[in-house]
Amino acid sequence: MLPNPALKMLLAHQGLKVERSRCVQHRYKPTDCDRCFKICPSGAIRWTDDGLHWEESDCQRCLLCVAVCPTGALVARELPFVHTLKKLAAEDRPVLACSGRPSTVGHARLHCLGLLCNPELLLASSLALGRPFQLNLTECRECPNAVMLPYLKISAEQVSESVAHAQLIEQTTDLDYHEKSVSRREFFSLLRRQSKVAAHSLADALQEMPDRSFGDKALPARRMLLLQLLKRLSDDQRVDLTGRLFPTIDFSGDECTGCTGCVGLCPTGAMLPPAMQGQPPKAHVQNCTECDLCTAFCSSDAIRIKPGKLGLMAMEIISAST
């Protein structure tokens, strides 16, 4: 037992939150989603009698499970990613590093850059920053989390086809890092700002939201971020990107019985109830994270999902993990 509750909260901050109500297997047991089990290098993510379980003592905090979970059932207890992006956006040549290797340099830190093995998050970062940014991987090889490197490369490769910007820097000589020189006044205002953010995050953690009920719909944070960023694009760009990124969902009218089971199954709210009972549901593709719960569930095989770019990119990571 830690004597200090605040200290305990800070440490809990580095772990994972398991939201079982979001988990595909928890919602519909017959599905065979095993993305997190497969990618975890240390067997810290398991299926127990209680269901999805994160074994804290076995976890290396590489965040690969968070990156591959399609529905946001595994959440990293970190500051919202927006904070990281804000820090990077203030730099001309932003460098993102990790707190696992404090000796590396960077303008912002994630616990492990393994989080960016999710191409969707990497894409969102590229859209948010709108200019090249470097991922400081110079010490990754000596880190137990080096397993995430090949996935990160695939992730960056996938994204570079759409909006090339993330640069994976493995040699110190390739790193282009400039520390901002700050005046005394700037230093103290920076310190004040940072402390404020830290205090806020601690306060948020102290009054953590209770677990969602299974019936609630919720988007993974990265999808919410992406949707917000898409709004900022010009109309042409937005239409072009949304057309490619998201899947298309069709219902075969003859086979759909209108039971609306898929509306209930969907954890993210991509299936909306029909206007008239008995009709097929309405698809809201921007909310679809292609977890394939609905297609696995539909006994009349009436749902046809044509993957979008986001789904295809995610599949590249998942197939590499087998």
């Binding site: 109500s21 919602r27 519909y28 009920s213 299974f214 019936g215 039971c259 609306t260 089971g261 509306v263 209930g264 199954l265 569930f297």
Partner: peptide, 13 residues
């Protein structure tokens, strides 16, 4: 338990 029910209606079926 309504907190865990996702409304798939398989029980009804």
């Amino acid at each position: 338990n309504q907190g865990r029910c996702i409304g798939c209606r398989q029980c009804q079926d």
